[in-house]
Nucleic acid binder design. Structure first.
Lengths: 342, 342
DNA sequence: CGCCTCCGTGCAATCGAAGGCGCATCGTGG
DNA sequence: CCACGATGCGCCTTCGATTGCACGGAGGCG
């Protein structure tokens, strides 16, 4: 049984014996308003269960209340954490989240996003890595007058338009941890070409090695692509070296799992024979055996901050945005790292 | 640099030298329309880059083009697969997907959803397990005149309102597989109380045991809650039994990972000493060591079907919906199952 | 005591698109 | 050659909410 139709602002006005304008004032919290009238209107609203029609509102205001989430991300946990974080903020507002995945590979990616933006004209969009690194995309948003915030592994825009973790520093810390445990031959599994995060994590590794006065050996650095299988391939390569590395930093957890997988296949004990550190602290990290030492970055916190930047101080002076833009990651120590026995 | 403002249907009409109505006819593919005029209008549209304003459209049509996704699901991979599947369908339409997670635990859950539905009046909503099992929620949608489709592990509504896998049958097959491998003492880790999927999977287990003429032993069935830790606790309990079970079916992969974890802690070899089967085929299943034999259910396919049900044959006779409602799961055989040596 | 100001409120126009109704035009047949 | 039906097209209203402008009443000041 379907309710006939929603009450409109006209119904409210009629029943309360006032004009639409007055009702509108009540809804929009206009300060100049008689207390009596306001109360009566509010009563009628409650009685009727009146809810303003967002489409009509959007039309009259010449703006809508949609926040887009653009991503091309294979990491489900991360995308969902972002959604959760953003929605925690948006829940208290009149904004809604509309998700729009795209294909990184597709040559029409920019057009796709452009169409989406033109059709919906969302109030703002959040762009997740790795496409957040695409400057054309940001330019497109700016051009169309759509607010945007990019999430990244390093600062890649002005503060108002980004939230970033500091991957380089975090990885440096992780590798330093390995060095402090006595490791000298530390393998690195890179992220895919063209990813800013991959570059940052590599730099972090190199900085740690150099600061410790260790030699930077090219053979210890092997290509990966953030996928499990590439972690396995990288491990094959690293474990074939003689002498073998005693520790490996993989640029994400999934590849770390691949390394662990291969180590196990070869009968190596982790962490006794090989220490492993990952990155991301996905659920997989804590469920592996042994549980994986990894770097956790505050996705949900960053997502909340991004949402606030998008919807925040709408009317206010936009010189001042109280939201932080840089977030620190922490090393989560589990059981996949041990001191060298040598 | 921000484009001043979007062209409207008026601009198009003026430039093409026709009335708005004619432009509207072109856009909405009205059949009664002169070819010449149509072409001219289309040219102007292309030239101006005119895109109809969805809000105005929604207002005039007294309906919008939003599909909601309601879930309270902790399984990120599943939620994201659903989003992907639905968006594959919606991409070709004018619909947009708006996500709305809820708190299962919250006593105001129904009100929350009600508010969401009243505010947005989405054209349709998709409801994921486990809240899809909540009949009040479905009733709410029906009451508000919002189309809905519920996803479940067993048929829980009429065909037009659900897509379901057949968990019972799938689990029966999985446990039969264990029995065929010679296992006689097979542990079961249950899903949480009050979950339909948990019940279905238990029934599948029991059916397999009974059909094989084996005794149904209560001590082999232990409670879990779909979380990794509960899998560990369950494993502790099962592996303390004497004689020990030689195989375990865990009601999802995460708990299976927990079982594997504990087995490893106790120095058991998997699969030689203990065979394990999970459910869901999340990425974790293939990344564990040994890779986990598990049941895969076609989430994305189901999501696509659900999306089609939601937006499909809008004007047509709604007696006929071509979309399937029941989907079969398959056993993915990996390395976590071995024949009994005894 | 009257006029002016200010506050609260209502009327009517507006946003962009859709569609009913009716007019103009074209084609055809008597 | 005219009448009539079919068809293409435009005017005007509508959807629900916002907002500029103007008006009525109350209070202050000359």
């Amino acid at each position: 049984m379907k309710r006939s139709s929603q009450p409109t602002i006209n119904d409210v006005a009629r029943l309360a014996g006032v004009s639409k304008k007055t009702v509108s004032r009540v809804i929009n919290q206009s300060p100049l308003l008689n207390g009596d009238t306001r109360k009566r209107v509010e009563e009628v609203i409650a009685e009727l269960g009146y809810v303003p029609n967002p489409q009509a509102r959007a039309l009259a205001l010449r703006r809508n209340f949609l926040i887009g989430l653009i991503h091309d991300n294979p990491n489900a946990q991360m995308v969902l954490n972002v959604q959760q974080g953003m929605l925690e903020v948006l829940r208290d507002t009149e904004f809604e989240l509309i998700v729009h995945p795209v294909n990184r590979g597709s040559p029409t990616m920019l057009e796709d996003v452009g169409q989406f933006l033109e059709r919906q004209r969302p109030f703002g969009v959040m762009i997740l890595p790795p496409i957040s690194e695409n400057d054309h995309l940001a330019a497109l948003c700016a051009d169309l007058g759509v607010r945007y915030v990019r999430m990244g592994s390093a600062p890649l825009d002005e503060a108002a338009h980004m939230v970033a973790s500091n991957d380089r520093e975090a990885v440096r810390g992780a590798v330093q941890h390995l060095i402090e445990c006595g490791h000298r031959r530390i393998g690195l599994v890179l992220g895919p070409h063209g990813f800013r995060s991959a570059v940052e994590r590599q730099k972090g590794y190199e900085e740690a090695i150099e600061r410790a006065g260790l030699p930077l050996q090219r053979t210890l650095i092997v290509q990966g692509d953030y996928k499990f299988e590439s972690g396995m391939r990288a491990a094959e390569q690293l474990l074939d070296l003689a002498p073998r590395p005693t520790a490996v930093f993989a640029s994400n957890d999934e590849m770390a799992a691949g390394v662990l997988h291969v180590a196990r296949q070869r009968g190596l004990n982790v962490p006794q024979d090989l220490s492993i550190i990952g990155f991301d602290d996905t659920p997989i990290a804590s469920h592996l055996w042994p549980p994986l030492t990894t770097v956790r970055w505050p996705i949900a916190t960053m997502a909340r901050a991004a949402a606030l930047k998008l919807v925040g101080n709408e009317g206010g002076a936009d010189g001042e945005d109280g939201e932080a833009s840089l977030f620190v990651s922490t090393l989560i120590r589990r059981a996949s790292v041990a001191p060298t026995t040598g």
